[in-house]
């Protein structure tokens, strides 16, 4: 009886945890794709997004290209620090996305 309960509890916990992880990924992707949030697809080819624009470079192999999470965050926070004539919206500086949203977005970008 005790054993059965333990199994049920651990399965529930596992599902909960993977749900949480999954939700985190989904959140980041949703933030990236949503036209009212990141709308990154307006300018970047990424993941399975359709009708992407071509103003910025494709967002691929992020881990290899941005080993430093802070550098990636800086690009999203305010792209003009790196390229003074960048047209990429300053998502952090202009509060287009909150800090928490940007963190979720970063988690998602590192899956690409």
């Amino acid at each position: 009886m005790h054993k059965k309960l333990l199994i049920i509890i651990s399965i529930t916990l596992l599902t909960l945890m993977s749900n949480l992880l999954f939700a985190n990924d989904m959140d980041g992707k949703k933030i990236a794709f949503d036209r009212k949030k990141g709308n990154c697809l307006a300018c970047h080819v990424m993941d399975d997004g359709d009708m992407a624009g071509n103003i910025g470079p494709p967002l691929i192999v992020m881990k290899a290209r941005f080993p430093d999470r802070e550098a990636l965050k800086a690009q999203i926070w305010d792209a003009t620090t790196k390229n003074s004539i960048s047209i990429m919206p300053p998502f952090g500086k202009h509060q287009i996305l909150s800090d928490a949203e940007i963190e979720k977005l970063l988690d998602y970008l590192y899956t690409l």
Binding site: L41, A42, C43, M51, A52, G53, N54, I55
Partner: peptide, 11 residues
């Protein structure tokens, strides 16, 4: 000017 001819989404 800067991005003339490029695509913003499908535009």
């Amino acid at each position: 000017i800067q991005n003339v001819g490029r695509k913003a989404r499908s535009e």
